[in-house]
Design a protein around this nucleic acid. Sequence first.
DNA 1: GTTGAGCGTT
Length: 118
Amino acid sequence: MNRNLMSVARKALTKVHNPNSPATNNKLFVAGLSWSVDERSLKDAFCSFGDVTEVRILYDKDSGRSRGFGFVSFCKEDEAVSAKDAMDGKALLGRPLRISYALERARGGPVVVPNGGR
DNA sequence: GTTGAGCGTT
């Protein structure tokens, strides 16, 4: 009896993380960047840990300067994990970096409207 | 010439 409850409770407590579903991703969320950093410098700093397939830094459309964070994609998760483990907490251009695994795009850009409706 | 947590199209 208790074993059944225990199994349920155990699942409820295990939902925080799952070894079968690693929170790792080949995409890395890089923040804490200096406002003077660019994709070239970021890629140059991360391409040393693996093959960078995508580098994207977010910029402010009002000031035209970087928002201080960006995304870095690797060819393999192993490279992303190594890069994060190696660069997270370190500093680039004089500012400490904060690296995390990127979530899927929220698509907050302009709405696409084909033909403007019929 | 400025500021400093965050999760996407400048």
